[in-house]
Amino acid sequence: MDIILLIKAVIMGIVEGITEFLPISSTGYLILSADIMNFWDKDKVDLFVVVVQLGAILAVIYDYWGRLWQALVGLLTGKADGMSNPRQLGLSLIVATIPVMIVGFTFADEIKAYLFNPITVAIMLIIGGLLIFYVEKRPKEIVAHEAEQISIKTALLIGLFQCLALIPGTSRSGSTIIGALWLGVSRKASAEFSFFLGIPVIVGAALLDLLKHHEVLSSSEDWWVLAVGTVVSFVVALLCIRWLVDWVSRRDFTIFAWLRIITGILVLIATWVFGYQITA
């Protein structure tokens, strides 16, 4: 067993657990981290980057199990105790998931082949940071204070915003949270809806990628490396979820916009000035 490789997997899991629910692009930071550490070969890294996110989204399921279960019951029966409109939440999540599923299933291989590289990540980090500045300064009228109040139309538009996250460096959380804020959803509801929306998207993408590309994991050690990263991401994400909800309820995302832009600029400088090697 390669201990150094396992340590790198732990680091990758920590990066995923911290960044998955922040508007800074977990995929982008995973690609950059893998590139800097020379972590695995490209095919294994591409699979790891997708599957390790499963750990973070399992943390959401664990932490919000009660609300998610009642939303499922509400979707099936039209009612559930303790929630204002559980059926609405279930329907909205289904509708918001459809666009990214269609685009992702159609273009997943092309996206991984041509866009999973540091230059794409850097450019999208900068663009996303500028969009955060714009949305935060834009006047807002709140139309949904809770995730259960998000309408079908708003959910569909959030789902379209989520399609942008297929480009590494954009951020799934960032595109859905900022998109929801733009559409008049409260900060807390935007964050929680983004968390919930990640469940079908990330679980589906991880399982599909494992099914299509499991052969790149050619040894038991490869599976151990993937498992370690996923477990670490679950634990770290579990510690971060409530903190982020509390953060967005009281503060804006300006600090994350600056972090995105500074990171993107540093990567571009490293590439063009210091000869940083791009993983193709």
Rank of each mutant, 00 (worst) to 15 (best):
L91K: 07
K212E: 03
D41Q: 11
L91Y: 05
V267N: 13
A144M: 08
A205L: 14
V216Y: 07
K8S: 11
I31Y: 08
L160S: 03
M37K: 04
A9L: 10
W243E: 05
A189M: 10
G90T: 03
V49C: 10
M83I: 14
W182D: 01
F48S: 05
Y114V: 09
A144R: 04
V248S: 09
G55I: 06
A257L: 06
F274T: 13
W65C: 04
E141K: 14
I18D: 07
D81Q: 08
S84Q: 14
L6T: 08
K137N: 15
A80Q: 03
V228A: 15
P99K: 05
G129E: 09
T263S: 15
R250M: 10
G74P: 01
V52A: 07
I24L: 11
I202M: 15
A270I: 04
G66M: 01
S186H: 00
I11Y: 04
L6H: 11
T263V: 13
L244P: 02
F195M: 13
I61W: 13
V10C: 09
R172P: 11
W224L: 15
A227V: 15
L208M: 14
L266D: 08
L226E: 12
L5Y: 10
G204P: 14
S249W: 00
I127H: 05
G198V: 08
Q277C: 02
I199M: 08
L72K: 00
L54C: 10
V15K: 01
Y276V: 06
D2K: 03
R87A: 15
V236L: 11
G159S: 03
